[in-house]
Design a protein around this nucleic acid. Sequence first.
DNA 1: TTTGCTGCAAATAGTTTGCAGAGAC
DNA 2: GTCTCTGCAAACTATTTGCAGCAAA
Lengths: 156, 156
Amino acid sequence: MVDFGQRFQTIIEKLKASDHKITPQRLAIAKILAESKGHPSVETIYEQLKNDYPTMSLATVYRNVMLIKSLGEVLELGFPVGSNRYDGNKPYPHPHVICIRCRKIIDPDLTTLQDMTKEVVHKTNFTVLTHQLTFFGICGACKKEERPTETKMKSA
Amino acid sequence: MVDFGQRFQTIIEKLKASDHKITPQRLAIAKILAESKGHPSVETIYEQLKNDYPTMSLATVYRNVMLIKSLGEVLELGFPVGSNRYDGNKPYPHPHVICIRCRKIIDPDLTTLQDMTKEVVHKTNFTVLTHQLTFFGICGACKKEERPTETKMKSA
DNA sequence: TTTGCTGCAAATAGTTTGCAGAGAC
DNA sequence: GTCTCTGCAAACTATTTGCAGCAAA
């Protein structure tokens, strides 16, 4: 993971540079985004903050995530099901692999991504600006759990 | 594009095989999905049909697209912005390239996709079940339009 | 002091659901 | 005749917006 403190500083600097006020709520949201453990959703961020900031509202979370996204400092994963998820730790487009059982999301480094982008550009004549690559499947841990007592049984 | 008539027949057969009644509305929706020109949205399908079927409702379109999707005969593209889009002509997962200017969607054949999937499996120990790969950019036609009279001018 | 920000509530967009009557088989 | 399907309206989820008061700079 990218250094949290550095990401946080970058976000705050961008906010100041674009003449945005640094409110406690904004600071707290930026902090969570900079860390982005588990690719949080707006709902998740809100839940984490409403104890420390009892008046915090979902609208404020939405507005600030949007603002920081508009500064290019958070990546919207763009999931269609349920609420959107965000990554402020690695704000540039990158692939995700999601376990459909435990909902875990991991960010693999794919060396083949560059080749694929080249192939897209070559075959379509597009100027590629960004992408969303997501693989869905079952992670190693869930595969084990799946057959906890199985030894030599044939599947029915 | 895959043969339209064949896709249509496959969908109808699957519907019958799963004991679903063949209503005129269902038939019409299946027809549009089998063709899937331009990767239609539920809204688009509804708009196309409401002239021929004045009582057609959005709910019916939603229900039937969902049904045919549950039979594995339509692919939900899974776009986060605006309404979802569907492809009943190629119902298996495949990459998309979208022009952010004219909204055109094309389906490139990417030979590198197989390598990428292998790399994901190797690096993550996931069993990959499906994927969503979307590239966003500017298509060739829109790139031309962008600078209609430009000849030897430096960009400002 | 000025201007932007927050919190609340209401509005919106996309989608889903309950129910009564219509229609496929 | 039976049982699923449709159409309508209402419900629901995620997100956005209007506005009045609050607070950062």
